[in-house]
Design a protein around this nucleic acid. Structure first.
Lengths: 117, 117
DNA sequence: CTGAATCCGGCTGGATACTG
DNA sequence: CAGTATCCAGCCGGATTCAG
């Protein structure tokens, strides 16, 4: 247990905040099975806007989780891929995904119970 | 891999959104080592406002991750504790914490590199 | 096709004051 | 002590437009 995590100025807190981003998790998962083009990601992650996709990818690139490769072709082609660091976080995020699907029914039951009170 | 996760209307997406909440992760971690009173949580999770703490606890309670026990004493006392479901997600969240502390240096180095360009 | 830039409505979340 | 209520600034994020 790292007590500093609860300190708002601690670096690990900032990392948690980044992972806690609602889109980052989904984008990382979308890159799980290999490189993806910008358009493929936009199609895959339902509901994300262009702005948020670009912003999320920039953030992930900045944190060293994703690489961005521009091919000087016409039409332009940009590939995004997970780095080693990105793949290491993928393991955790995939765990979240498993948890979500496994316990979905329990959570929904709890919600229904709570709302019915 | 569950493809539906990327669908905005899928239930598992909603679960991910909840876990992805920036405060939920911290509150769950704060409850890792046993019951906590409202005030203890407020003190522990640095930077959270009363409003957000209450709101986060309600959300976690609704999802069945946390129990809320009111003691009819003067002064009033309210204890929060993880449910079995909450403890199951704690394992994952603790993994995030480990990752954050382990790879913090790499992430910060990547950020510095990116910002220096 | 892959973005950057801008505008702007809405919701998040902080500060404050009040209640049981 | 443990909230609730209210107000409101700020930022998130969507839609649109423009550029390379």
């Amino acid at each position: 247990m790292n007590p500093d995590l609860f300190n708002r100025n601690c670096g690990s807190r900032k990392v948690i905040d980044r992972i806690g981003d609602r889109w980052s998790v989904l984008v990382v998962l979308a890159l799980a099975d290999g490189d993806k083009r910008y358009g493929e990601l936009a199609e895959r992650v339902d509901g994300i806007s262009q702005k948020m996709l670009t912003q999320t990818l920039r953030g992930l690139e900045r944190d060293g989780l994703v690489t961005r490769t521009v091919h000087a072709t016409v039409p332009p082609r940009v590939d995004y891929a997970l780095t080693d660091l990105g793949r290491s976080v993928l393991d955790l995020v995939a765990g979240l995904e498993d948890w979500a699907t496994t316990h979905l029914a329990e959570v929904e039951a709890a919600r229904a119970r709570y709302d019915a009170r």
